[in-house]
Amino acid sequence: MTFENSSAPSTPGPRVVTVIQQDANVPLDMFEKWLDGVEVRTIHSYAGDEVPVDPAEVGDGLIVLGGEMSAVDDVVAPWLPATRELLAAASVAGVPTLAICLGAQMLALARGGRLQVAAPPGIETGVIDVQWRPEAVGDVLLGGLLDLTVAEERRSTPMPSNHGDAVVDLPRGAAWLASSAMYPYQAFRIGSAWGVQFHPEAGTDLLSQWAEGDDDVDAAEVRDAYASRADELTEAGRTIAQAFVRLVNESTVTRAALV
């Protein structure tokens, strides 16, 4: 699957965002409607679609979704090496990139960070409070979430979560943006890429589906937790998606002007 080089778009129209879906059960979900104003093209790597390694082939933006495999399970998921290579290249090339959960772990690894499979704190699932660090203030993708916090001193936002592996060392030069009570590296930025351990794209049905597939998780408790904060969760996820669309459009214009 090949797209025009995004550095110099020749015709007006919606910008192209490539989505790498790595698991049939981890789709774009709510982002399908929130990524309004861009053309989304999905590569189903789990189904055999080839993953490009050249960032010029993804269009104007890149989103890498999560999955049940680990970020280093190359035998089970043979597309992982190409996806890690693409993430590293896109983050250096200036392509706006959002890597979610497994995607975030792959981004960290691709840029020299360190991952722990089945991390000792255990599975972090359901609705968590993502706590923003000072470095997140003014961040062009995630900074708007600070405006949604209940109180200035709290600086946290509820987010859906579902993972057991975790980043334990960020890549050198990465900006650490957020943590949670259970895991420190909930969000980071490196180059033109953002990694988020939480799932801003997940709605209540998808989060419940994940919970129902794990015998160690109380699916009813997860559903109730989401329902109690549904408005906050929806607003937060939509805020990230819309900020990403703005970033893609603004970045494309900037890169075109430099050509």
Rank of each mutant, 00 (worst) to 15 (best):
T11L: 06
L98H: 02
Y183R: 09
N25R: 03
A93S: 07
L148A: 06
V168N: 00
D73L: 05
W176G: 09
G213N: 13
A243N: 07
I43R: 01
A175P: 03
T149G: 09
Q21W: 00
D216Y: 00
D60I: 10
V51P: 04
E232R: 15
G191E: 14
Q105S: 08
E32T: 09
A241V: 11
P184K: 15
A90P: 06
D23K: 07
L206N: 07
I128D: 03
V167P: 00
A110C: 02
Q22T: 15
D29G: 04
P78L: 13
G144W: 04
R255F: 09
Q209M: 15
F3D: 13
T83L: 12
W34G: 00
A243C: 10
D215Q: 14
P55H: 09
S179W: 09
A236L: 11
E4H: 12
D73I: 05
Q197C: 00
D215F: 11
Q131E: 15
F31K: 01
V51H: 04
R172L: 15
A88C: 07
R223W: 02
G112D: 12
E152H: 01
G48I: 09
V259T: 13
R15F: 10
T2I: 15
G138Y: 02
S91I: 05
A243E: 06
V17N: 06
S208M: 07
C101E: 03
I123E: 08
Y226N: 06
